[in-house]
Design a binder for these strands. Structure first.
Length: 192
DNA sequence: GGAACGATTGAT
DNA sequence: TCAATCGTTCCT
């Protein structure tokens, strides 16, 4: 685990580059009960002109954070019962983000097990709504700062050897775009 | 005001 | 393969 957060400039880059470079970095929640976090092993890019992106049809109350400054958390509620976590990219005014789809659990694993009501390590963070539940992220984190807030993304320790690129999961519009990225041979991704 | 749908998950 | 479950979006 690394405690040095990525600088804000990192999130100003092209969203696809951010999605690729986030692999191997650490998503951490400094919760009141202690440190909970893991290594990012799977991401998806959401571009403004892409129909699957929440921001593709303009700014609304829900997606407003995506149009704000980079390096912020975009958390949204979906399917009536789950939340997903994104890192906002690009300069203010452009609505793009990277969805964090899976983590390799590192810190606070016992707390994750309790929050998820699951015992197996691979059931803790192998999906976008699962990792949000494991880390204890809520809608209160929507818009919070990823450099100085209670949820941060920290620099990678090891370089990622090989990245696999595929189409994204669970979308209809834009389903043919190669915007999903994961660490090759990592066993903690959301789908094999 | 009303209906359909969704960047998911877990059980069958 | 399918139900759970509700805020957002889009149509009337």
């Amino acid at each position: 685990m690394n405690l040095e957060s990525l600088p804000r400039d990192f999130y100003l880059q092209d969203t696809i580059q951010v999605a690729r470079k986030l692999l191997g970095c650490y998503l951490v929640h400094y919760s009141v009960d202690g440190l909970i976090g893991g290594k990012i092993v799977e991401t998806e890019a959401y571009l403004q002109q892409d129909p699957a992106c929440h921001a593709s049809r303009g700014k609304t109350k829900r997606n407003a954070v995506m149009f704000g400054p980079p390096g912020k958390a975009y958390v949204y509620f979906t399917y009536g019962m789950y939340h997903c976590f994104n890192a906002v990219t690009r300069k203010e005014g452009i609505g793009e983000a990277v969805l964090i789809r899976a983590l390799e659990p590192i810190e606070g694993i016992e707390m994750m097990k309790i929050k998820r009501n699951r015992d197996k390590i691979k059931d803790l963070c192998s999906g976008p709504a699962k990792l949000v539940q494991s880390l204890g992220i809520t809608m209160e984190h929507n818009g919070s700062d990823l450099i100085s807030g209670s949820v941060t993304i920290n620099k990678a320790i090891e370089t990622v050897k090989e990245i696999v690129v595929t189409t994204r999961i669970g979308i209809k519009a834009g389903a043919d775009l190669p915007l999903r990225f994961y660490i090759k041979d990592n066993s903690f991704i959301s789908k094999k």
